[in-house]
């Protein structure tokens, strides 16, 4: 069990700046995110797209922004619990008990939800049958590639994950690559390799097709694929792999008893507290009249939530507003020498 002042759900820009604001106030935060790296949408969706509306920074990429935010919180030695998703939230006395999917437990007086639009999860096949076979015959990621040795595999998708795995798995298995159109959006090197493997008769490519049905009772026997004109083809297969990128799902957050408004959490604009005391929401996931989904708004929201977290974490101390330019306390927390 980890005791802390504030538990932050999410590790995007709003979360990282909240760590900084909490740190300046002398509060310790622990950060949980179910991606394998910090940065949230900045790292996942647009690492190399330039952003032009961060105050005082005319242009920077998502990746640079996150790097700079991480540098700014270095003095606070924050613990990041990545690849982990917060599953449960329950009141324990005056505090909150937070449990992750890996059964890690945190105790904190405040929780800041900075979850973007939820957690990223793989996009799945639209078919009902695909659900039934999920993790036994239908997969959206590969943990152990040996599992697929000497099998018949159908891989769906047109990006690098689909191409990478087609190339890799075709070494030891029979691979059919299926995509909804004839162009692949992977790197030209991957596209070339796949086309060469096709020419050499090592892999089979079927375009423009999408999954139409899955046949089999306990085990997948075959699938059918269909094109836009309605033409159907049958393929014998043992496994189906789908690589359609990630989609954001609200996930367990929806079950914590918070008020929700279309996948967003309503907050008050004084402290960004939700309908539950000690639970705050900042960044893209919160909503209030006039809400703008800008990184800059997330920064402001985190700064205000941090003040309220202070009151809950230090009920016997008086909150005092201080400037970073002049406060000795702040300079000490930042490890700076002051004059």
């Amino acid at each position: 069990m980890i005791s802390t002042d504030v538990l932050i759900v999410g590790a995007g820009p709003a979360a990282l700046f909240a760590v900084q604001q909490l740190g300046l106030l002398g509060l310790k935060a622990e950060v949980v995110d179910n991606l394998d790296k910090v940065g949230g949408q900045c790292s996942e969706l647009y690492p190399d797209k330039p952003i032009y509306d961060i105050p005082a920074i005319s242009e920077c990429t998502g990746e640079t922004l996150i790097k700079n935010l991480m540098k700014q919180i270095e003095p606070f030695n924050t613990n990041f619990h990545l690849n982990e998703r917060v599953d449960q939230l329950a009141k324990e006395g005056t505090k909150w008990k937070i449990t992750t999917n890996r059964k890690k437990v945190f105790i904190a007086p405040s929780v800041i939800i900075a979850g973007g639009v939820g957690s990223f999860e793989p996009r799945k096949f639209p078919l009902k049958e695909a659900e039934k076979f999920e993790d036994s015959g239908v997969f959206y990621s590969i943990r152990d590639k040996k599992y697929f040795d000497n099998k018949k595999i159908c891989i769906f998708g047109g990006g690098d994950s689909a191409l990478d795995w087609s190339i890799e798995l075709s070494k030891n298995s029979k691979v059919v690559l299926v995509h909804r159109r004839s162009e692949f959006r992977g790197t030209s090197k991957n596209v070339e390799t796949v086309n060469k493997l096709k020419k050499d008769g090592i892999i089979q490519i079927e375009t423009p097709y999408q999954l139409n049905s899955i046949e089999g009772d306990n085990k997948i026997k075959a699938i059918t694929i269909k094109d836009d004109e309605g033409k159907i083809k049958k393929i014998d297969t043992d496994y189906i792999l789908g690589f359609f990128g990630l989609v954001m799902k609200l996930g367990p957050i929806a079950e914590w008893g918070l008020n929700l408004d279309k996948k967003h959490i309503p907050v008050n604009t004084e402290s960004f507290q939700t309908n539950k005391e000690g639970i705050f929401a900042i960044g893209d996931i919160c909503t209030y009249p006039g809400k703008l989904k800008l990184i800059l708004s997330g920064f402001h929201e985190g700064a205000l939530a941090a003040r309220e977290c202070f009151k809950l974490a230090r009920p016997n101390e008086k909150y005092k507003f201080e400037y970073t330019t002049t406060s000795k306390n702040i300079h000490e927390r930042l490890g700076k020498k002051y004059i």
Partner: peptide
């Protein structure tokens, strides 16, 4: 846009 549509739910022409 076409690349992004690869990820859409049940895209068609």
């Amino acid at each position: 846009e076409e690349d992004m549509l690869d990820m859409a739910y049940q895209p068609n022409k």
